[in-house]
Nucleic acid binder design. Structure first.
Lengths: 343, 343
DNA sequence: CTGTTAGCGCGTTCAG
DNA sequence: CTGAACGCGCTAACAG
């Protein structure tokens, strides 16, 4: 080694007057080493400011001590909560987390040649549809530990997955809107193919049915989990269906867009029209009026996914399905403030 | 290899009827290989669904093709913009990005033993004070490529850094507030030790001085880039200094807290009191009223940092300082809508 | 309790 | 244009 390079385990061994095996033992706290030897080795490590080469460690030990997260995007209010849950759990178990955002590019184009493939990782958390079914199958066929987050396994394949009660949350919210006296309730849907979005719409439909209300297709407009898309759709909706009295948006982002569109049309929330969202994202409480929404346990979902994966890595088993409960958060956008509260 | 393991370069070589060296050549597009041989090798790779082991690659080639980002936190509106800029640039140059959030834990506790150390990375972007001066010096002494983002190098050390014109932006905003007729302008400061925050306060002070206004220490309250902290401080400020006519918050988060505090006190924005923020974060335009703020070119800063680092890795040289311009965004929270615009 | 040694999977000379 | 052989830095038997 010289000034421009990094010290290796051999440098440490030499300086401590021991073999590389001993240095490896103290680093990994494996095997039996005298307290005295440990001290000498640690002193040498500190003096040299040595850090093990993780590539070499992974190669030699066939363990990466790392779990990977594949996600479509990272620029999302949703994502920060999710990540907090995952990180926390991962670190508690002394693993490291590697994150890769696909941004819509197929997994196969990016991962295979690069640092976040299955060689650097003891298992993967797959968020929504960042990886396609075929790739999932291949990974699974090799017994590579996988946990799905907000996404179902390919047909016929058993992979543990974690999600929350989208349908029930949407059902409850729709029921709440009905209890508030609303009848013409529109729904701003999410992206096609997104499972969360699908279940939320399903919950809306079922609640309507249970309460004897017909589902009017003209009242379901596309929002794509996106404020701008939702605003456009709601503006149009307000024109063609002027007599609606409530809007339930599939997520808080589209609720935000709906709010802007409603205000633009000269109507007031909640006096003229009620509005509800889904997620209870950071934004929702700062909207004006504060948004009534469904709280999604996003951070808990992250924790559960990480915990399931680590368990899978260690024991070979995990729960096939983890379903986390959602909860109504009644604020002001529906015009019913705490009517049901603690009496 | 067997069913539960992954194929290696030797499996590919055998199947294609060539040596491992040849496989390596086609993977890395190095050396001269017949079109026919290339095709055979690629077919074998596809058939086996082979992916190179990146640990082994890094070990053998002594290049990670990866740059690392060390950041204090990832749960931040600010961060998503920054990341977008970094990712984009990194991928354009065919590098991969590894992200590590320290969450306040010292770098030395986490990185050295784990997958994101200097062995897996050809260079590092250091965001604010996620890494201390001593560690920076050590890395630098080993000629390890480093770019600092929103942070100055340790005294006496030359490291390229990227930031934007915090002081100038704050100066302009303060001048704008003065031009609006305000005189008793309070400042909600940022975290101690945060350089961005320091420069912003400095800009505020200088603008006051240039316009012949005294800096009243009682008008400077702590906000910590945090809405709750800022709200508490501003509530107190409103009591002790009831005659202030404007508040300039060091970032949009603390502006949001200030807004809540002002409203709570029964005053109106902008009629009773003007409010300005800094960053132009996503939130600011959805506040009520929409927040006048300073637009920080966060994504551009991310792009610049990545570009400088890659240049540094390739050429050994980078610009000592990249200073990106900021820009006033006049919305409604100061009560002066576009007075200066295009006349 | 400690040292020796043989790979882990790959890139890279160097021959041919 | 292609193959053989070595070594990257480390862990994991196996000896002693």
């Amino acid at each position: 080694m010289n000034a421009t390079t990094h010290p290796t385990i051999a440098d440490v061994a030499q300086r401590a007057g021991v073999s590389t095996a001993t240095v490896s033992r103290v680093i990994n706290k494996s095997g039996n080493v005298t307290a005295d030897t440990i001290a000498r080795v640690q002193a040498a490590i500190a003096a040299l400011d040595y850090a093990p080469h993780s590539g070499a460690r992974i190669l030699a030990s066939r363990r990466a001590r790392t779990i990977g997260l594949i996600t479509p995007t990272i620029s999302d209010l949703f994502f920060t909560d999710l990540l907090r849950g995952i990180e926390q759990t991962v670190y508690e178990h002394e693993y490291t987390l590697l994150i890769h955002a696909t941004h819509g590019r197929p997994y196969d184009d990016i991962i295979p040649m690069l640092p976040l493939n299955h060689h650097n990782t003891d298992g993967l958390i797959i968020f929504t549809n960042s990886v396609d079914d075929a790739r999932l199958q291949k990974l699974h066929a090799r017994h590579f530990p996988l946990v799905l987050l907000h996404r179902s396994p390919p047909a016929g394949t058993a992979m543990p997955c974690v999600t929350f009660e989208n349908k029930d949350g949407a059902f409850q919210m729709t029921a709440h809107l009905i209890a508030c006296g609303h009848r013409r309730i529109a729904f701003v849907s999410g992206p096609a193919g997104n499972e969360d979005a699908g279940w939320r719409e399903q919950g809306y439909r079922e609640a309507l049915a249970v309460h004897g209300l017909a589902v009017d297709p003209a009242l379901i407009v596309p929002g794509d989990f996106n404020a701008v898309v939702a605003a456009t759709a709601v503006t149009h909706l307000l024109h063609t269906q002027p007599n609606i009295d409530a809007i339930f948006a599939a997520d808080d982002e589209s609720a935000r867009g709906a709010l802007a569109a409603i205000r633009q049309s000269g109507r007031r929330v909640p006096q003229d029209i009620a509005l509800a969202g889904f997620d209870d994202s950071l934004l929702s409480q700062y909207l004006h009026p504060p948004l009534t929404t469904v709280r999604a346990p996003i951070e808990a979902a992250g924790r559960a996914a990480a915990a399931q994966l680590i368990q899978l890595i260690h024991t070979g088993h995990a729960d096939p399905l983890t379903l986390l409960p959602t909860e109504l958060v009644i604020r002001e956008s529906c015009g019913w403030v705490l009517v049901n509260s603690e009496q």
